[in-house]
């Protein structure tokens, strides 16, 4: 192995790592606010690429129907609830939230995306569809059981993942896709050849993580989320709605998934069921960060990407074993060094 090879592997690892960062950040975000380990995060990533590729082929992606049905279910659930409380304002609000917003995106996807549309617009509509799915999944699956234990929530998340998997097979078919990427000539940077795709992935990932950081730091909504993340009961006492907080993080999670999907789509072939393994690697990154600390989770995700890249050079048959083995020393170190936050103590 010479330095050239090492640099190329490092670059490849950092690019995969950048995508795992987005996944890990979203997992930590969702977990800290709602205590859900959002297994379907990876599925949404794969769905984004599949949606974009359908637009590129000039077809209507199956995501449109998935969002339509999910929105229908969410609106009916909300209406039943509003009728029970005879709350007209709430009915109106949820019609707006779960009916109108998805309807706008769906109509745009149905009628405003011709095959000749610019790539950026196709990307935006794909991202819009997937972002809608985030809060819809929260409303249908997790909101009704928000107070359940993390284990029950995890089981529900796995059920949601399996459900999305089957729906994905019907909506997108069994075959894989590869989307168009950032085009342009490779750049020379610090003596290494960097493809525009790699540069774009790294840059976007940094921007998204920075934006999340700022969001938590400054606007009231972001600080409310932080409060709900630190202490659910306390946040409720001071009048922060944990349901609204949950919905917001799922919007963010959907958005993060959509961005990851757009970034990873051109670098590899994605299938309806590719998401799980991606999510799992993001999860390893998140575990390294203790499911609570963003910078650590991001560092963990970069570590996963780099280890993966070098392992595929040295011992390709055991690559995934090496990656998932990372989790053991981390868990061991954590179990002897810090006391895990107790879920029950609220």
């Amino acid at each position: 192995m010479n330095t050239d090879v090492a640099m190329i592997l490092l670059q490849d690892g950092l690019v995969s790592g950048a995508i795992y960062i987005l996944l890990a950040t979203a997992l930590v975000l969702v977990f800290s606010v709602t205590r859900v380990i959002f297994v379907p995060q990876g599925d949404l990533v794969a769905f984004t690429a599949l949606t974009l590729s359908a637009f590129e082929a000039g077809e209507r992606p199956g995501t449109i129907w998935i969002v339509t049905f999910a929105a229908g279910i969410a609106v009916s659930l909300e209406m039943v609830e509003a009728a029970r409380w005879r709350d007209r304002a709430r009915a109106l609000q949820s019609l707006l939230r779960f009916g109108l917003v998805p309807a706008v995106v769906i109509l745009a996807a149905l009628f405003l995306v011709p095959k000749t549309a610019p790539l950026v617009w196709k990307m935006a509509v794909s991202a819009g569809l997937i972002t809608c799915l985030g809060p819809l999944i929260y409303r249908i699956v997790f909101q009704p059981m928000a107070a359940a234990s993390p284990l029950v929530l995890l089981i529900a998340a796995i059920a949601a993942h399996l459900g999305l998997n089957s729906i994905g097979l019907h909506a997108f078919g069994p075959e894989g896709v590869r989307t168009e990427g950032f085009s342009g000539a490779p750049l020379a940077l610090f003596g290494m050849i960097v493809t525009p795709q790699a540069a774009g992935v790294l840059a976007s990932s940094v921007v998204v993580v920075a934006a999340l950081y700022l969001f938590f730091r400054f606007p009231l909504r972001g600080r409310a989320l932080l409060a709900a993340a630190h202490n659910r009961r306390g946040a409720e006492i001071v009048g922060i709605s944990t349901v609204a907080a949950g919905r917001t993080v799922f919007v963010l999670a959907g958005l993060a998934a959509a961005i990851s999907g757009l970034l990873i789509g051109p670098t590899t072939t994605l299938y309806y069921d590719s998401g799980f393994i991606l999510g799992l690697k993001g999860f390893v990154g998140a575990i390294v960060g203790g499911m609570a600390v963003y910078p650590l989770a991001a560092a963990g995700a970069l570590l996963v990407g780099t280890v993966e890249s070098f392992a595929s050079f040295w011992a390709s048959a055991y690559r995934d074993v090496v990656v998932f083995l990372l989790i053991i020393p981390v868990l061991f170190w954590r179990s002897v060094s810090v006391l895990a936050p107790e879920d029950g103590l609220e």
Binding site: V5, S16, T268, Y271, I277, L278, E308, S312, F313, S316
Partner: peptide
Amino acid sequence: SERYQRTDTSVLGQILK
């Protein structure tokens, strides 16, 4: 003689080798 998984998103390491 290298290996990869069906679900892999990158095989750069193997190919370089």
